[in-house]
Computed example of a mutant assay.
Amino acid sequence: MMTFGSLGGVTQPSIHTSSTPLALDTRSWGYAEDFVQPDELLREAREQAITLGLEPISNGSATALRFLAHLVQARAIVEVGTGTGVSGLALFEGMGTDGIITSIDPEPERQSAARAEFTKAGVRSNRFRLIAGNPLDVLPKLRDGAYDMVFINGDKLEYVEYVAQALRLLRHGGVVVLNNALWKNLVADPDNEDDETVIIREALAAVAETEEFTPLLLPVGDGLLAAIKA
């Protein structure tokens, strides 16, 4: 039975069952995260991110991105938050050989690192468009309904606006994916009212309450929310 309750001022679904399922332990989580082993290039890109003081997506999250890109046969992807190319490499692995990623990040240094990783992986330069700028300035300039996938991994305080842009940018049958959907175990904590936590909850609620979206919350990495646009 599903009912709805309030979490941080945002309506959230809560599930009541007659019995509590067995919780997975850390060994099971680790087994799931590493079930598909990353290649050397992904490892290097993650190490580069850590060197720059960034938190790269986990191996499980990268695997999920690759799977989703392949599932929707993505040929055009928008990425908010380039990082050092970890997510981009995973998406390229899932796309066809002619797939193109448009990736937006306000930090040129990160994009330089990502460009180096893409080149090392043999990705042709005409398959990625790296735009250094504020995502909320760039996204409105992209074409409606022209993209198969939108991956959101930027400023947490702008997640609600990113979701609104994703709905416009995606074709029917396209997928939006939000990273950090569980945000350091804080989203599920009803007592936490930090700004980032509250905005992420609002973004999740916006997806859940949008009729065009069919959502799925995946407990991999720091949480991935995926939703298909009808």
Rank of each mutant, 00 (worst) to 15 (best):
M2T: 14
S6D: 15
L7Y: 06
T11S: 13
T11Y: 06
P13E: 12
H16Y: 09
T17I: 02
S18L: 02
S19N: 12
T20R: 14
P21F: 04
L24C: 05
G30A: 00
A32E: 02
Q37K: 14
Q37P: 08
D39E: 13
L42G: 03
L42D: 08
A45G: 07
E47M: 08
L52P: 05
G53D: 08
L54G: 06
I57S: 08
G60V: 00
G60F: 02
S61I: 00
S61D: 00
A62H: 08
R66K: 13
F67P: 11
L68T: 04
A69V: 08
A69F: 04
H70F: 09
A74K: 11
R75C: 11
R75K: 13
I77G: 00
V80H: 11
G81C: 08
G85K: 05
F92A: 10
F92L: 12
G94R: 03
G94P: 11
G94C: 09
M95P: 13
G96N: 14
G96Q: 14
G99D: 06
T102K: 04
I104G: 01
E107L: 00
A116L: 09
E117N: 15
F118W: 04
G122E: 07
R124E: 06
R124N: 07
R129L: 09
I131R: 12
A132C: 14
G133V: 10
L136E: 15
L139H: 02
D144R: 15
G145M: 08
Y147K: 06
Y147S: 03
D148F: 01
M149W: 00
I152K: 01
I152G: 01
N153S: 14
G154T: 02
E158N: 15
Y159T: 10
Y162H: 13
A164I: 04
R168A: 03
L169D: 04
R171K: 15
R171M: 09
G173H: 03
G173P: 00
V175P: 00
V176D: 00
L178T: 05
L178C: 15
L178F: 01
L182G: 04
K184M: 10
V187A: 12
A188N: 12
D191M: 11
N192Y: 08
N192H: 12
N192T: 09
D194M: 10
E196A: 12
V198Q: 07
I199D: 02
I200C: 06
R201E: 09
R201L: 05
L204A: 12
A206W: 13
V207N: 14
A208H: 13
A208P: 06
E209Q: 14
E211C: 07
E212R: 10
E212G: 13
T214V: 12
T214N: 14
L217G: 09
P219F: 01
D222I: 00
I228P: 06
K229P: 08
A230P: 01
A230I: 03
